[in-house]
Each structure stands twice: as structure tokens, then as C-alpha cells.
Amino acid sequence: MSETIKTDVVIVGAGPAGLFAVFELGLLDIKSHLVDILPKAGGQCSELYPEKPIYDIPGYPIVTGQGLVDNLLQQIEPFHPTFHYGEMVEAIEPLGTAEAPLFRVSATGGKIFECKSIIVAAGGGSFQPKKPPIEGIEAYEGSSVFYAVRRMEDFRGRHVVIVGGGDSALDWTLNLQPIVERLTLIHRRDDFRGAPHSVKAMRELVANGLIDLHIGQVASLTGEGGQLRGLTLKGADGALRDIACERLIPFFGLTMKLGPVAEWGLNLHENLVPVDTEKFETNVPGVFAIGDINTYPGKLKLILCGFHEGALAAQKIHRYVYPDKKLTFQYTTSSTNLQKKLGVH
């Protein structure tokens, strides 16, 4: 187990709301760490619609999802937040009191944080791989069916079947082909949306007889004791074909699942976390929820609302982090103190 990371606030989720919370906390001298299951910042903005224009961010008549994230990262840079990507907060354990909250936060990968407040900015939950609804697939997960390649050795010398038509499917087809017994790529159509050079390299492997490409969808699996032996493919023409398969890697993109947030002792209402509209605090003192994951009368799932919620939560968090300090409200336009923190004075 690694050493405990001590900080003021752990922010769960590095989407726009979580990122801007760093800014509002930073102005109040509150340090934060961000934890996100994705390998990068931005949450839904980066994952679902990086190239799509957003028209309702105040001050930006038009900005793309990724453009907004890039700007937020630049905006919070003066506060040097620490990012923990590819990790998910699994458990929070209260150590303090309602007046002086303190939490131990554990993340996947073994990281432990100790903090005075937590901001849950987890959007629609954590992004997790979509599982194809093939009957009985659960029995093979982790032993024969994998939704990501963590260790290439798990696939060496095996009959491997990859399903999908994007970059993940193509990249792993190209990377695993040299070490497996036989690689079969299955996609629902003979059109691949991955990078053109990867598509070309894959087509060459097919032409040289080094991999098999089948157009269709997986209909059923065969095997026993968690060990897959084969699968049945249903072709575009409806014809069924049996394919040897010891390792199956389906790439169907990501979906949002509420995940461990449900286990943290927070009140939930239809998979959302109720908060008050003064401090955006949950039923657990010291745990705040902002952005798409919270709910209150009149709630709108707008990015701009997440920004507002973070600003107000920061005011209350200041009282937990600096119980003896009086907080004087200041503007970035006129306060030399704030401007110093931003590195502009």
C-alpha cells in the first residue's frame, strides 16, 4: 500500500465542474487532488463530444467540448492541482466529526488520501466498458473475456477474437497478432472508423492470411468453467459460423454507471445525490456534490450550473479547512491577493 496523500479536498471526477472547482478552491488557498477513471481530463466533454460545439457557456458564443476543457486546464494551472487518471474512488471512510470532517478516501490502484472535504463531481457516474448482451458472458469475464488489454501475456499463444471497428479494436488486432495462436477480428460491417493507417495495416494482415476478418455479430459462446472454447458468429446474411475462441475482447465503447458512489453512505434519489442549494453539501457533512450528479429543486444539468455550484461549495469548504480564518469575499478584478495567487500580479 502506498503512503497516504494528505490534502484539503479530493475531487471525484475531472469533468468541467470538477476542474472549475479547483479554481474556486484555489482562490481560497484550498489545495485539491482530482481522481478520474478516464486517462484524461474533461469527463463527458472529452469522452462524448470533444468536437461538438457548445453554445451555452457564458462568454463563449461557441466552444467545443475539448476547447472548453483545454481552457479550464489553463485556467486552473496556477493552482497546480494533482491529477490521478485511470483511477476510481472506491470507498470513503469518515474519520472526523460533523464540525471538523476528515475522510480517508481509497482509490483503485491502492492510493489512499486523507482530506477534510470531498467534492463529488462524478457527472453521470464512471465511464465503464459496455458489455455485449451475449447470454452467459459474465461467466467468462476476467478469465476468457476481457474489456481491455492489461497484460499482453494473457493472450500469448491463444485463439483470440476481437470485436469492434474503432481504434481500440484495430490497435489491439495489430499489437496482439504477432504473439497469439490465431487472431480473428469481428465487426458488424465492412467499414472501420479507426485511423486509416490502422485499417490499411489490418487489411494487409487479412490479405496475407495472417488474421481472419468476419463481418457479423457474436450470437453465442461455448466453453465451461470460465474457459471459453468457441463462439458462434451470425453473419450479415444470417448464416451461423463457429469460430475457435479462447480469449474474447469486445470493444463496444464506454457507458456511464453510477458505480461506487452508491456505497458511500450518501442519500440517493433516482441515482442522483440530493444537496442543499446554499452549500451544495450532501447529507454527510464535508461531502459536497456538484454538476450533473447532484439534484435539488429546479436542478438543470448545465455546465454553467456546475460552475456556480463549485463556487458556493468552496465557501463552506473554507470553513472546514480553515476553521479559525474569517473569509472575506474578494473579486479577481480588484484583489491583489487573488491576482498574486493567479500569478498575474
Binding site: 459496455k130 455485449p132 448482451p133 469492434g164 471497428g165 458488424r188 460491417r189 467499414d191 455479430q217 463496444f252
Partner: peptide
């Protein structure tokens, strides 16, 4: 839209 349908089931 075809690209996104790759993520759907029983297309």
C-alpha cells in the same frame, strides 16, 4: 451515425 451504431447491440 453508422460509426456510433458500432456501439449498439443487435444492429
Amino acid at each position: 451515425e453508422e460509426d456510433m451504431l458500432d456501439f449498439a447491440y443487435a444492429v
